[in-house]
């Protein structure tokens, strides 16, 4: 029942023999060994398995690998353009301390990159809504929110990235806002 398919992932073409019941998540992790993409709930609720398909965020656990044929898949491994040039979202996740256990991080970063690709100047509410399909089991939502705010500022060129680093007030106006505790609106 296996069929040989060609997948485009992070600009590379992979030829893999997969049965049709294998999800994109399984094939990315187990066949292509791209384990940056996590598997969480398997129901599309937690967002740990988020990848971009033709630039749009999708949950790879709910997609058959055979249905990704002909599309461009981007995983967290493909977010940075080079080893020493992290995507602004990744750099700001580090600078803001937005990574705790790290399990949600790849999915969060792809959701953040997707949000900023479509809306470079999101409001606070739009950032929270943009991340509402990603759960952080450490509940570290506030730092994640701040990282996305800073990445947005950096992408707009509003703040020099290094000047903002290390300044806790630079994360934006949400510091003292109790409603800012969760990325889910």
């Amino acid at each position: 029942m296996k069929q040989t398919i060609r997948l485009r992932v992070n600009g590379d073409t992979y030829e893999v023999a997969v049965p049709p019941w294998r999800t994109l998540n399984e094939v990315l992790r187990e066949d292509l060994r791209l384990t940056g993409t996590k598997r969480g709930c398997g129901d599309g609720d937690c967002g740990a398995c988020t990848v971009l398909l033709d630039g749009r965020s999708v949950t790879s656990c709910l997609m058959l690998a055979v249905e990704a044929v002909g599309h461009e898949v981007t995983t967290v491994e493909g977010l940075a353009t080079a080893r020493d040039a992290l995507h602004p979202v990744q750099a700001e996740f580090i600078a803001a301390g937005a990574i705790q256990c790290g399990y949600c991080t790849p999915g969060m970063e792809l959701s953040a990159a997707y949000l900023l690709s479509r809306n470079p100047s999101p409001t606070d509410d739009e950032i929270r809504r943009g991340l509402s399909g990603n759960l952080c089991r450490c509940t570290g939502y506030q730092k994640i929110f701040e990282a996305v705010r800073r990445a947005s500022d950096r992408l707009k060129g509003a703040a020099p990235p290094d000047a903002a680093a290390g300044d806790p007030a630079a994360g934006g106006p949400a510091g003292g806002d109790p409603s800012g505790g969760g990325a889910r609106p």
Binding site: G44, R56, S57, V58, T59, M63, Y114, R129, G130, G133
Partner: peptide, 9 residues
């Protein structure tokens, strides 16, 4: 309806 990712699918 659901989440950003689900709405994209």
């Amino acid at each position: 309806t659901a989440t950003v990712q689900i709405r994209n699918m």
